[in-house]
Simulated scan of single mutants.
Amino acid sequence: MRRHLVLAAALSGVLLVSACGSDTGTRRTVTAVVTVSSGAEVPSGSAEASGAPAAAGSREATGSAAPARESPAASASPSVSAAPVVTGVDPLKVDCGAIISAADVKKALNIDIPNDRLKVAVAEVNTDAGQTGSVRCLYGLSDDKKSGQVTLRLTAYTDAAAAQKQVGVTVQNETDNGGQVSQTTVNGYPATVALRDGGLIVMDYDNWTLAIAAPASVDAATLTSGLPQLAGSALTRIIKA
């Protein structure tokens, strides 16, 4: 199954494939802004801690109305040592081209994708889950420019507790759908990798979530090790932007 972080079924958050798509709660409409760009890559060797169709987007940290049951895997977050969280960051304003590049994807996942991307503002968010806005970044675009080989989703929430809760919902849904879930860290912060028809990494940071979905063409070992690296590059650049 090819992924899309139009994240349409479940990361309908990071997320970033069909786990949390039952957005039955109250929604609000957000004007969609689409940006297509190509050309210069962001440097992959900067001092930071260190492909999927549009359907991958359904496996982000979404606004699913599913009950927020915490899975055993989600509750067993590893002990981490991380820098203090930087508050006041608005990840939705960051250009997709400044977050990750084709070179980052090659380094982390060992796949070659075109160096183009598409930024799409999600038109509907789940206000019942505390969502206030969400964007998708599609990388390595298809010919019709409607999907990407790698999908990243950023979702903002009313507060940090709401963001963390929705990550728990996503992890539980991945577990319920047969995903192989494991705990990891991204720049020292807790994150979860789920392997199911490709790979998904999802995490919360302050009052927002980051999710990245990658295609099933990448082997499980590379997804498990590479997705945290790719998310680390993205997180560092978003905070610095």
Rank of each mutant, 00 (worst) to 15 (best):
D144K: 03
K145F: 14
K145N: 11
V150E: 08
R153I: 06
L154P: 04
T155A: 12
T155V: 14
T155F: 07
A156H: 08
A156K: 09
T158N: 14
T158K: 09
T158Q: 13
D159F: 05
A160L: 07
A161M: 11
A162S: 13
A162V: 00
A163V: 07
A163P: 04
V169A: 05
V169M: 06
Q172C: 00
T175Y: 03
N177E: 11
N177K: 09
G179W: 10
Q180L: 15
Q180H: 11
Q180C: 05
V181S: 02
V181T: 01
S182Q: 15
T184L: 12
T185F: 03
Y189C: 01
Y189H: 11
Y189M: 04
P190W: 07
A191V: 01
A194T: 02
A194K: 00
L195V: 14
R196E: 06
D197N: 14
G198V: 02
G198H: 03
L200W: 10
L200G: 07
I201P: 07
I201N: 05
V202P: 02
V202M: 08
V202N: 02
M203C: 02
M203R: 00
M203Y: 01
Y205N: 11
D206V: 03
W208N: 09
L210N: 03
A213I: 08
A214K: 00
A214L: 03
A214M: 06
P215T: 10
